[in-house]
Deep mutational scan, measured.
Amino acid sequence: GSMEQGFLPKGWEVRHAPNGRPFFIDHNTKTTTWEDPRLKIPA
């Protein structure tokens, strides 16, 4: 929902695949990933 959306880094969006699995869109680089960007520790 909109709650989890608010925690994503700037430029990211979460969508759900037809099977219900969430995936993440990085509008900054125009890419998608199954990995939650929030789980990655910034270098």
Rank of each mutant, 00 (worst) to 15 (best):
H27A: 05
A43W: 09
S2R: 13
E13N: 00
S2P: 12
H16F: 15
H16N: 08
V14G: 03
E4W: 12
G11I: 00
W12A: 03
L8H: 02
E35K: 08
V14E: 10
S2L: 12
H27E: 06
K10Y: 09
F24C: 14
T31P: 01
P22F: 07
F24Q: 02
P22G: 04
K40Q: 12
R21Q: 12
E35L: 14
N28S: 06
R38E: 03
G1Y: 08
G11V: 00
R15N: 05
N19I: 00
R15K: 11
F7I: 14
K10V: 10
I41D: 12
L8Q: 01
N19P: 02
D26Y: 03
F23S: 07
N28T: 07
M3Y: 11
F23D: 07
H27C: 14
A17E: 06
G1P: 13
G1L: 13
I25R: 01
G1F: 10
R38C: 05
E4N: 13
M3P: 12
E35S: 06
G20P: 00
F23Y: 15
P18Y: 06
F7N: 14
P9A: 03
R38N: 05
T29Y: 02
I25Y: 15
S2D: 12
P9F: 03
A43P: 13
T33G: 04
I41M: 13
N19T: 05
A43K: 11
T32E: 07
W12K: 02
F7H: 14
Q5Y: 10
G11R: 02
N19W: 02
P42W: 06
I41W: 11
R21L: 09
R38F: 04
D26E: 02
H16V: 15
K30W: 05
R21P: 08
R38S: 05
R38L: 03
T32N: 05
E35H: 14
T32L: 15
F23W: 05
P37Y: 00
P42K: 11
V14C: 15
W34F: 08
A17Y: 06
L8Y: 03
G11A: 00
D26R: 00
I25T: 06
P22W: 07
H27G: 06
L8E: 01
H27N: 08
F23V: 14
G20S: 03
F24I: 01
G20K: 05
F23N: 07
T29Q: 04
N19D: 14
G6A: 10
T29C: 15
K40E: 08
G6R: 11
T29P: 01
H16R: 11
T33P: 01
E4S: 13
L8K: 02
D36P: 06
A17H: 08
A43V: 12
F23C: 15
P37S: 01
E13Q: 03
M3F: 14
M3D: 12
P42I: 13
L39Y: 09
W12G: 03
P18I: 08
N19L: 01
N19Y: 00
N19R: 01
P37T: 01
E4H: 14
Q5W: 08
